[in-house]
Structure formats: C-alpha cells, structure tokens
Design a protein around this nucleic acid. Structure first.
Lengths: 105, 105
DNA sequence: ACGATAGGTGACCAAAAGGTCACATGTCAA
DNA sequence: TTGACATGTGACCTTTTGGTCACCTATCGT
C-alpha cells in the first residue's frame, strides 16, 4: 500500500505535534522545531524524515538551513478514502451502529 | 492524547483491511474474519482488540459468537480535527505548498 | 452428558520503531 | 580562513508491536 507510510507517520504523537507546529507556522528549520520539543536534535530529525517520506512535509534548502512545510494533501486523500466510503454506507451499517452505541452509554 | 489509540490502530495494514472487510459487510464473527486472512486466529483477535480499544469497532455477544461492527465516528473526528484546520489555513500555507509541489513534479 | 465449536488469556519470541551519541559534511560571517 | 552553526549518517540500545502457541472457559446440538 502506498498510504502505509502516511498512516505510520501519523501514528506517533511527536510527529502529530510537529504537524501541529508546522500548521501554526511553517517554513521552520530543524533547530527551531527542536527547541519546541524535549528531545534531541537527532530524534526530531528522524521524525521529520518519516513525515517527509510520507509526503506530509515538504522541504526546501536555503543555504545551510532546511525549511519544512506542511503538506495536507495525503490527509485529504485519507479523508476521501475512508469517510466518503463510510458516508455512502450510511444507510446500512451506521444506523445499526447508533443503536449499539446508545446501548453502551 | 485520547486519539492516540485511533492513529495507532490505523497504522497497521491488517487492521485497515479488517475495517475494509467490516465495511463491505459487518456483524461478522472472529472466525469468519479469520478465514479471510493468512494469519492465525490469535493474530486476528489481537488486531480486533486494538480496533475495539480504539472504538473503531464495536461488538455484541450473541451466544457463543461475538459480532463485530464498524464504527466510523473516530475517523470522522480525525477528519474534523485535521482537515478542517488545514482548509481554514488554505489561504496562507497551502498556496506556498502548491508552488513547492509543482517544482518537484 | 458430551463432543464440537467459538472465543479468551498469558507466556513467549522476532521484528520494527523510538531515541541517543560519535562523527562528519557543508555553509555562513568576520 | 577559521570558527561557529545547521544539518546529515551509521552504529547502537531499549521499548513497543506483531505474531504464534499451549491451555482454558463457555455455548451449541444431539
């Protein structure tokens, strides 16, 4: 599966936090992102590499700095894959599920 | 984070396949799901447990059988959390990202 | 009652993932 | 041109995860 890297990348809370950081303001460098985390530079670098391989983050070199930008497209694709399918299914399983959930609460 | 289990549950391809199976037709038993996978019953059971802990699957006992139902609500919540944020951000970062991506292709 | 069937638990092992460090390259600025 | 800075790589360790198995409980049909 090609989206396997996207799901694996989203599975780690540190990486989701990095995406949140880049959401508020992207174009940040590794050192700037590192300063927001209680982790060594190498740990942050590994996480950014995973995000980049999943295409959730795109980068651009600027001199000795590497700028990181958020790429929401893979998340959109997840949305299109799962949610649309589920909403199409709305009439069959979801109604049964509602009953299930209401029993629990 | 409360959604950590959801992301971790979605990270495994076998579990995503189980969700796909339950999407096409839910209310299936463990043994029925096991027959669709090249894996022991115990492996499938562990995966279903992870999905159930993440609330992506809800279950109901019926005699000696346990029926499994798909619950799309956590995926909707992911959608609401990420995609809406990104679309709000559409005017700032996304336009820069488009330029980035077009450079690469 | 009893064999077959459906599901559950705990120990256990191998593989993958998270994290750090020593070291190394390239770039800026005085 | 030299020292400080920004990033990169590979080895290495620890923890988590994926998977199997021996064994167990509960339920169905006859």
């Amino acid at each position: 599966m090609t989206d396997d890297r996207v799901f694996k990348a989203l599975a780690d809370p540190t990486r989701r936090f990095l995406l949140d950081l880049l959401f508020t303001r992207d174009g940040r460098t590794l050192t700037e992102l590192e300063s927001e985390l209680e982790m060594s530079r190498f740990g942050v670098m590994k996480h950014l590499r995973v995000l980049e391989d999943a295409n959730l983050v795109v980068t651009r070199r600027s001199g000795r700095e590497k700028l990181h930008f958020l790429n929401p497209i893979p998340i959109r694709e997840i949305h299109d894959r799962w949610i649309d399918k589920y909403t199409e299914h709305h009439t069959t399983a979801l109604l049964e599920l509602k009953a299930e959930l209401e029993d629990e609460s």
